[in-house]
């Protein structure tokens, strides 16, 4: 197993390097550079040139790339010209919100996915299963941003069950219990909206895993031992079907990232997704680029996580 994990880790290194090169090239192609946002355009061009020289903007691309990577490693992602603050700090503020939203979404995803998938797989082709499968088809067909708007309108504005924007009630004192409750409360509606739509692939995956496992020969062996239905399901079918789902966890992160971009926008939830959209519309390229890099790394790590989980839970990979 260790060999497998080390090899898998080694693969991520070139992936991240390639990603960083792409992001760097994108950054170079964007109009303007680190200086454009900082200085008064009416300043003497010679002075600008001096500044450029000082900041290393005239160096060959590979030196600039090395500087840029070096900066990132020291936590320096450049300056946001809109917020006039370091990108690292800006993203840091927003990241907490997005992580909270993601956790809420993941919890609801599994709260919904496991029972629905298990029921649907166990009682396949019954009315119950058809109902659940019907829901998954609707989930596939419904765009997240429209669904989120409907949820916001119904539960936020009409029923007023949930706050409709922001990440915390104004005036809450940071660090208190009320503050954290308010934070969670703000993440609930966007989280549930996202979970309800994104859960459908997990439900279908789990359903087909169970139907597949049900027909395996070793299930007959278990029945022939005199194991009752409940035991056959719990000890053999569910366990074996949940393993691939555990591995699916890393991939959930990938869908979460795209999900948060839409949902944060609709719920005006100040997380990285919203920041990303804003920075694009307002041409705050240093922020947008940094986020692309972070999202990209998160995806690569998600895939890595999936493979590592699988290698731990599946003895066929574990024992090698």
């Amino acid at each position: 197993m260790w060999k497998f994990i080390v090899r898998r880790l080694l693969i991520t290194i070139p992936q991240i390097i390639i990603l960083s090169v792409i992001v760097f090239i994108l950054a170079q192609m964007m109009p303007g550079d680190a200086l454009s946002g900082l200085i008064d355009p009416s300043i003497d061009p010679a002075a600008i040139e001096q500044q450029r020289e000082r900041l290393g903007l005239n160096n060959p691309w590979y030196v600039q790339y090395a500087d840029w990577v070096g900066g990132i490693l020291h936590g320096d992602l450049g300056q946001s010209f809109r917020f006039k603050m370091p990108v690292t700090e800006l993203i840091g503020q927003r990241m907490g919100n997005t992580i909270l939203l993601s956790i809420v979404t993941l919890i609801f995803t599994y709260l919904i996915a496991l029972p629905l998938g298990l029921i649907s797989g166990r009682f396949n082709d019954t009315m119950l299963d058809q109902g659940i499968t019907g829901y998954t088809y609707i989930g596939f067909a419904t765009p997240l941003f429209i669904f989120a708007l409907v949820m916001l309108w119904v539960f936020g504005y009409n029923l007023s069950w949930f706050p409709t924007s922001g990440s915390v009630a104004p005036g809450s004192e940071s660090g208190t219990v009320a503050y954290w409750l308010s934070k969670v409360n703000h993440a609930l509606l966007p989280g549930i909206s996202m979970a309800l739509i994104q859960v459908v692939s997990t439900v279908q995956y789990l359903r087909s895993e169970i139907i597949d496992t049900k027909q395996k020969d070793f299930i007959l062996t278990a029945r022939a031992k005199g194991a009752g239905e409940q035991r056959v399901y719990n000890k053999h079918i569910f366990r074996n079907s949940l393993l691939p789902i555990a591995a699916f966890f890393g991939w959930e992160i990938t869908t979460l990232i795209t999900g948060t971009v839409f949902v944060e926008k609709i719920f005006s939830y100040p997380g990285t997704g919203l920041l990303f959209l804003e920075s694009i519309t307002q041409r705050d390229f240093s922020v947008a680029n940094s986020l692309v890099l972070i999202f990209g790394i998160a995806q690569i790590l998600g895939a890595l996580l999936s493979d590592i989980i699988l290698s731990i839970v599946d003895p066929r990979i574990r024992i090698k």
Binding site: K216, D217, F218, L220, T221, A222, R223, A224, K225, G226, A227, G228, H236, R239, N240, L243, D314, P315, R316
Partner: peptide
């Protein structure tokens, strides 16, 4: 289920698939 596996038992054809792999 009290009888299966106790009073009567079965040996299956394909040893590669008749055991739970996990």
């Amino acid at each position: 289920n009290k009888i299966r596996g106790d009073e009567m038992a079965m040996i299956f054809q394909d040893p590669l698939t008749a055991l739970n792999p996990l």
